[in-house]
Design a protein around this nucleic acid. Structure first.
Length: 511
RNA sequence: GGCUCCGUGGCCAAGUGGCUAAGGCAGCGGAUUGCAAAUCCGCCAUCACCGGUUCGAAUCCGGUCGGAGCCUCCA
């Protein structure tokens, strides 16, 4: 039984979708006014993993991530850069999508844009007016918080404690906590025709409208960053439930926020203030979106690779705060090396490529692996532990530790039976079975779908040169000329190539 | 001020009432190696502090200290 922490009830609940076997997930995506930073990727990566796990558990999952492409910030950006709003939105959406791709997020089924759902949004707003939960004021439409008895139940806030947006709108609102469903537009602002004049949607209404269109009036999971609980999700919930008279979402899931905690200055950074050297030493941790120099996600991906970043995020439970640091990323990379080494051993022994293995689509099929072989028994124990971690509110941190256990178990099996020397058929079968299990479990996390770049021969010329170097070194070693042999090895190490001697030959890799 | 959450070894991080407190990184010792690398084996914590509940708590309750988020745009 999968259990899920629900922000609404503040506790873990048994996961039971509204419709048997089917799951609808809506995740709040970005407002595309600027390039994405790593904090924007936490939600997509964890929900990508959650969807994979739910699929593996037998559910038919529909996952929606919206793109907010109309909003005050976009309008401001558009003025600053002298470009139309939709051009900026298109540029930033491309950036977002390419980041998702690099990080292996490929499970999204729908990515609706606010501007493509204006009709739906207007309809939704009209419904709320008709039902007495919203009112028009001078071209603006506001949600009437006082009309909603339940307002505040998600973020545990009373209506009057929840002061809405201020500014010019404030005078037209009946209550300070009322929020805009529709905003009237000035002449130079992007706008759409509506029953209340030209205008644009408010921030929250698009999610209510688009989730209804794609997932229905009630759906299973709504996700987003912890910072969206109030006001965004509180208001979405209010709109939808007042409009439909039934619960909008069964499980509200919120991921922890990422903070910058690095003093290296490259990606992390400090929150504010000028600060001299001594201050920089005292690491200031801040929410990424508020820290300076938080951008540069694409350069981060270039330097570390998407897999490392994904693994780094998945090693922590999704609800906890993640402190971002270069060091943490580096460590994640080192930890990943152990897997790569095992895949190489597997290839040497069986001549099969781990990355080409097809992951078992379903947990049930996978359950059938039982054996009286002690080794496979241990493999299965680790698998069971992995699954119970994932069942427990998608505890990817605990699950990854089972993966390390699994790797060690397999390595031990290879060592104890000297499989790299000679591998009998029954050993080969056992090894293959265990590696297949590893494939199945890592596929759920969305890692190891392809060989890491630069892990083997980067190009033909390098390969040929390395062959020559290794041959020369082998000759030196055969002649017990270890000074030369070591000089070659040390020299290569200096330029980032690691040499591994084994009984039947020498391997190399870019480290 | 109101509302949440967190504080586990040098660092990261599972565990949320009961076997000897997972795992990763770093470190140390050993096997292996010409020496390395890789791999394997072994070593390295009583859970911020104080008090309480309990036969029994890192895990529940109260307090103290420290940190974070939301209450304004925010993944």
């Amino acid at each position: 039984m999968i259990r899920v922490y629900n922000t609404l009830s503040k506790q873990k609940e048994d996961f039971q979708p509204l419709e048997d076997g089917k799951v609808g997930i809506y995740l709040c995506g970005p407002t595309v006014y600027d390039k994405s930073h790593i904090g924007h990727m936490v939600g997509p990566i964890i929900f990508d993993t959650i969807k994979r796990y739910l699929k593996y558990s037998g559910y038919d999952v529909t996952w929606v991530v919206n793109i907010t492409d109309v909003d005050d910030k976009l309008i401001i950006k558009s003025r600053e850069r002298g470009l139309p709003m939709d051009a900026i939105a298109a540029e930033m959406t491309d950036d977002y999508l390419s980041n998702l791709k690099s990080l292996g997020v490929d499970q999204i089924d729908h990515m609706p844009r606010a501007t493509e759902n204006i009709e739906e949004i207007i309809q939704f707003t009209q419904d709320l007016i008709d039902k007495g939960f919203a009112y028009e004021a001078d071209g603006d439409v506001f949600f009437d918080v006082d009309a909603d008895q339940d307002y505040g139940k998600l973020s545990n806030r009373s209506a009057d404690a929840a002061q809405g947006e201020g500014g010019q709108a404030v005078s037209r609102k009946k209550s300070a906590s009322d929020f805009a469903l529709w905003k009237s537009a000035k002449d130079d602002e992007p706008s759409w025709k509506s029953p209340w004049g030209k205008g644009r949607p408010g921030w929250h209404i698009e999610c209510s409208a688009m989730s209804r269109r794609i997932l229905g009036e009630s759906f299973d999971i709504h996700g987003g960053g912890l910072d969206l609980v109030f006001p965004h999700h509180e208001n979405e919930l209010a709109q939808s439930e007042c409009c439909h008279g039934k619960p909008m979402v069964k499980y509200w899931m919120h991921n922890g926020l990422m903070r910058a905690g690095d003093t290296s200055g490259k990606v992390g950074g400090r929150s504010d203030g000028e600060g001299d050297e001594t201050e920089v030493q005292a690491t200031v941790e801040t929410k990424i979106s508020r820290s300076k120099g938080a951008g540069g996600l694409s350069s981060l991906i270039e330097r570390h690779g998407g897999e490392r970043i994904r693994f780094f995020l998945l090693r922590t439970h999704y609800r906890s705060t993640i402190v971002f640091s270069e060091q943490g990323l580096q460590e994640a990379g080192t930890a990943l090396e152990g897997f790569y080494r095992l895949f190489e051993r597997y290839k040497r022994i069986t001549d099969n490529c781990f990355y080409e293995l097809t992951a078992a689509p379903l947990r049930q099929q996978d359950d059938e692996i039982s054996s009286d072989c002690e080794f496979l028994q241990q493999v299965n124990d680790h698998r069971q532990s992995y699954l119970s971690h994932m069942d427990d509110d998608f505890n990817t941190g605990g699950a990854t530790s089972d993966l390390f256990d699994l790797v060690r178990t397999i390595n031990r099996f290879i060592d104890h039976n000297d499989l790299e020397q000679a591998c009998a058929d029954h050993h080969k079968d056992a090894l293959t079975g265990s590696v297949q299990t590893l494939r199945n479990l890592t596929a759920i996390l969305g890692i190891f779908s392809a060989a890491p770049v630069g892990a083997a021969g980067s190009n033909e010329l390098t390969g040929q040169l390395m062959e020559l170097m290794i041959a020369l070194r082998a000759e030196a070693r055969a002649n017990k000329n270890f000074d030369i042999a070591d000089r070659i090895r040390d020299g290569l190490e200096e330029i980032g190539i690691t040499i591994e001697d084994r009984k039947d030959g020498t391997d190399w890799r870019v480290s």
